[in-house]
């Protein structure tokens, strides 16, 4: 399993991660980021893409 961490002090809710891994990240009705904290290893590539596109570089994958 992969553990996903988002630094909510850095996150500005730009939502670009949502396009890379919509099963992990979403914007709620108030345009605030919500995410699931763990994902299957098979999702690694898309989650790393979400890490890459985050303008605030707020997302990290904890091994």
């Amino acid at each position: 399993m992969i553990t996903i961490n988002v630094d909510m002090d850095k996150c500005q809710h730009y939502g670009q991660c949502v396009f890379e891994a919509p099963d992990v990240f979403k914007l709620n009705d108030d345009d605030k980021l919500e995410f699931v904290a763990t994902a299957d290893d098979s999702r690694r590539s898309d989650i790393e893409s979400a890490v890459d596109v985050c303008p605030m570089q707020a997302i990290s994958v904890v091994e």
Binding site: H13, Y14, G15, V18, F19, L27, D31
Partner: peptide, 11 residues
């Protein structure tokens, strides 16, 4: 400027 969900629709 803001309005993220709206921006994403156009994206």
């Amino acid at each position: 400027i803001g309005m993220t969900s709206e921006v994403m629709k156009y994206r």
